[in-house]
Amino acid sequence: MRAEARVVAEADGRGGTRLAVLRGESPLLLRQTGPRSGTATVHLVGGAAGPLRGDELRLDITVGPGAALDMLSVAAQLALPGRAAPASRMTVTASVADGGVLRWMPEPLIAAAGSDHIVETRVTVEAGGTVLWRDDLVCGRHGEDSGDVHTDVIIGYAGTTVYRHELTAGPRAPGWSGAAVLGEGRAVGTIVVAGPGVSATAGVMGADAAVMPLAGPAYLVTAVGADSRRVKDALDPYCSRALVAA
């Protein structure tokens, strides 16, 4: 299955945001939710099972000058094995203009046993734009082995790559369950915040989470946990709108 979805958020000239484009197709259906004033909110609604092996999905997000968009999802995305085919692939691109604010906070991706899934994320933020980008990953459903999953993220701010990260987990990834990568943890989540004047103080929260100021005007919050609940508890406090308010 191939599917493409696209969101374009623009300032409406009255301090709010309107969605100039909101287009999706199963299994990438998009719905505008919440009040029609201030920040626009869009939920990703899974219109079919999957992604399954062989699927090629693409979501493009554009946030114009002065627009504010929250992207969420109604449920976890469950990567499943399906037929014998190449890896399923989800590509997400986002561009945020000067004065634009994007928060990407979907529910976790779950790599079911036998799945083979690749997520490629490319986020470009112009000087003066702000992004909060969250990705949670769960390696296998409850009590099952992890599928193979590979995430590949580039986040750039003002023309410089501030965060470049790949993570590979599952039976084909050497050492992924060793003490350097995820250990016994089966869930991992990251939040990257980048924007003008963004800074944070390095710190740790509990044994398996930390806030890390990046080399550019950005910081990362990472948490590893036995399950998605632990990661959610560590990361949720870092998703508030106040953190990205210009």
């Binding site: 590949d152 580039i154 790559t161 470049r164 990260h165 790949e166 993570l167 590979t168 003490a179 350097a180 990568v181 995820l182 250990g183 943890g185 991992v188 990251t190 390095a202 710190g203 740790v204 044994a207 398996d208 989470a209 930390a210 806030v211 890390m212 990362l220 990472t222 948490a223 590893v224």
Partner: peptide, 19 residues
């Protein structure tokens, strides 16, 4: 190109280093 070079990360190495 630099962005295309390997970027494999290890979350526990990062978190452990901060601890």
């Amino acid at each position: 190109a630099v962005d295309d070079l390997p970027a494999a990360g290890a979350p526990l190495l990062d978190i452990g280093a901060e601890h």
